[in-house]
Simulated assay, not measured.
Amino acid sequence: MNPIIVVVVGTTDISLIPGITIAGASPELTHYTPAADVEYLLTGRPKSIPGIPVTPDGIPTPAVVTRALTRNMPKLVAFAGGRVRPKVPYIDLGGEPGGDFRKGPALSETAVENILENGRILGRELAKAGDVFIGESIPGGTTTAMAILVALGYDAWGKTSSAGPDNPKDLKTAVVKEGLARAGRLDDPIKALAELGDPVHVGVAAIALGVLDAGGAPVLAGGTQMLAAAAIIKALGGDLGKVTVATTGWIADDRSADFFGLAKAVGVANIKVTRASFSSSRFPGLRYYDRGYVKEGVAMGGALYLASLRGLPVLEMVEQEYERLVGS
């Protein structure tokens, strides 16, 4: 296996809704999280904000885990559209930041089509070089994932995960219902994505479609958000039989969501779950992962899966990276 990791980043104004996500120290800082995630992933330090992205309680980004376990693997950043551009090299998919779909369309149809076209081109080229693992960073993404799934015809109400132990399902459901009521009839997938989507889910699906075009078998490295990407792939004619979702045990065991029920409904059969535990870590920030915080993001599920295949000492490697981070 010759893995290439692509992290698709972008923002949605849904993340500015108070209480909807903890993927940032405050709602305003959520727009910096994706850029800082990939800056840290590639260079070992964020450039867009002074410190690494954390939750309001100081729990570190899953990029810590991904960086620790994939140091010797090639990684690319795909910028799907966001309020803050990463200060590291990236491939621009030609999208735009996602808007608050309660107030108007999340994206223009032109942006959706640009991301789909450019993402497919990228996916086709990457498939020639190795096995493509696709991750994401977009605060508020589990809410937009629910919206995308519902807009594409699935019963996803309250079934997507959360970066915190207290999944704000009632708030997410109310936000998505408001968006649906505003959007009205959704006749086709492009319109559904424009009205209720975000740039990152479209980007993940587009790259995967390109890999499929080239005869490859993409791995979607993430949680319930990747099931929304899979639903987009399916809606646009992609073969889900050749798509794998690699996720974490923290997602699989999340009783506030329904990863396996959603996967079955969408038609994702190839699932890899890696059961890492940080409960014995000497760092409190890492121990929180086993208490229902973070769960996924920045291709962590893919990184843990690859580490399991290679027999790597996961906790030791992650602690070394975290210690370096704390020390710096």
Rank of each mutant, 00 (worst) to 15 (best):
M1H: 13
M1S: 15
P3C: 07
I4V: 12
V7Q: 09
V7P: 09
V8F: 02
V9M: 12
I17T: 11
P18S: 01
T21E: 11
I22W: 10
L29P: 02
L29F: 12
T30I: 06
P34Y: 07
V38W: 02
V38P: 01
E39K: 14
L42C: 06
T43Y: 09
G44H: 02
R45E: 13
P50T: 09
I52S: 11
I52E: 01
D57E: 12
I59N: 04
I59W: 03
I59M: 04
P62N: 10
N72K: 14
K75T: 05
L76S: 07
A80K: 04
A80I: 05
R83P: 08
G94D: 01
G94F: 05
D100A: 07
R102P: 06
P105C: 05
A106H: 01
E109S: 05
E109K: 03
A111H: 10
E113N: 06
N114K: 08
I115R: 00
E117V: 08
K128P: 00
A129H: 14
F133W: 13
G135R: 00
S137L: 09
I138K: 12
P139S: 08
P139Q: 11
T142N: 15
T143Y: 00
V150A: 10
A156N: 15
A156W: 10
A156I: 13
T160F: 06
S161Q: 13
A163N: 13
G164Y: 02
V175P: 11
V176C: 02
K177A: 15
G179Q: 03
L180H: 03
R182C: 08
G184M: 09
D187M: 01
I190C: 03
I190N: 08
H201W: 02
G203F: 02
A205F: 10
G210L: 00
G210H: 06
V211C: 03
L212N: 03
A217F: 04
T224Q: 03
L227N: 07
A228T: 13
A231T: 15
I233L: 06
A235N: 08
V243Q: 10
V243R: 13
I251D: 10
A252S: 14
A257G: 01
F259R: 08
F260A: 06
L262F: 08
A263V: 09
N270L: 05
K272W: 04
K272C: 00
V273N: 04
S281T: 06
S281P: 03
R282K: 11
P284C: 08
G285M: 07
G292P: 12
Y293D: 04
Y293K: 01
V294C: 04
E296M: 03
A303F: 06
V314D: 10
E316Q: 14
M317A: 12
V318G: 02
E319M: 10
